[in-house]
Amino acid sequence: MNLKQYLKIWVASMRYSIVRTMMFRFDFLVWLAVDFVWMMVNILLIEVIFSHVDNLAGWGKYEMLVLIGTAMIISRIFDFFFMGNLLELGGKIRLGEFDFTIIQPGNPLFMVSTRKVDLEGLPNAFVGLGVVIYSMGKLGLEPHVGQIFLYALMLICGILVHFGVLLTIASASFWIVSTEGTENGYFNLFQFSRLPRSAFKGVFNFLLVYFLPVVIISNLPARTLIDGINWIHMLWLTTATGLWFFFACSLFSYGSRRYTSASS
């Protein structure tokens, strides 16, 4: 299949997902509201902390909100395109439903990660964007086009890192068939994206800032908006993204060779 055909399949499955979501409109609204409440709770946490202190590891209140808004945009766009698909992957491998993916005439990773989109994610990505824009206004920042362009590029890196980490966790199911619930680790891990990099010390600094790029995916774009362009940051983020994405894809294709199906 060529690129055009892949795109056509993706668009078709998006259209199907949207039609399906619109059949369960009330459900859709409930999930939207739930997610919105969670986001507000996170913002409230910042409000509460800053009602008692004036900075968090050197970050001011509105700088923190730029950070949190950025983390929200990344995770919501990832939710929209990929999260549901990758969360289902582990179960598919365990139950033998992965059969239906590998018999399709396309790249299995593409097929499995674009089967559907979750519409709930998208509106709240705009809420995140709203938080960022509002906080930038409060900080009196007016980023130029280059900053915005690099910021957008860094957001894409963030989405790819989410993809890589969750795919790595899901691919573990090729080896550990009996264990459910490892996917939840993904949610625990990316909570660190909402914290400023300067708050990390010692072993956490090594693990979560340098080894797993869960902290830098939000911190570096936020600093790009606040402080201006830093090419070393850009290089760091793109390299880390490339390495993780490549590692995850290799693990997936190596694991899928071990796949033995089940119960059929």
Binding site: I49, T179, G181, N188
Partner: peptide, 19 residues
Amino acid sequence: IRASFSLLNLAVAVILWMA
């Protein structure tokens, strides 16, 4: 597994409040 993962939640809270 879930209990071990909640160590990460605890770490988030501890890092945040220590900061």
